[in-house]
């Protein structure tokens, strides 16, 4: 059955995104990992909309909302990274300890 394949693929993509989110030191790569996470969720939503709810595809509506929020998140996140880079002159996540003791 193909729905399980889709869901397993989305789970794998989600786990790759979590690994990149935790381990990467470049702040831009952290944002890319967040995009991977959101895409995994979208894949789940589209899969459910196709296989479980083929008549009124509400999953696709939710996926479009997720895409909207992802675009807003990317814009604001990259602006924050630019501001931090201007202040600290680095994009290393290990040095962003402004709010940490």
């Amino acid at each position: 059955m193909q729905l399980t394949y889709i869901l397993i693929l989305a789970a794998l993509l989600f786990c790759i995104g979590i690994y990149g989110l935790v381990t990467s030191r470049n702040a831009v790569r952290v944002l890319m990992s967040i995009e991977l996470l959101l895409n995994a969720v979208n894949l789940n939503l589209i899969g459910f909309a196709n296989y479980l709810d083929g008549q009124q595809i509400k999953g696709q509506v939710f996926a479009i909302f997720v895409i909207t929020v992802a675009a807003a998140e990317a814009a604001v996140g990259l602006a924050i990274i630019l501001a931090i880079y201007r202040n600290r002159d680095t994009v290393d996540m290990e040095k962003f300890n402004l709010l940490k003791w």
């Binding site: 729905l3 296989y51 479980l52 709810d53 083929g54 008549q55 595809i57």
Partner: peptide, 9 residues
């Protein structure tokens, strides 16, 4: 999973 039998729209 309760796969729907209806064809997709």
């Amino acid at each position: 999973w309760q796969i729907s039998d209806l064809p997709p729209t």
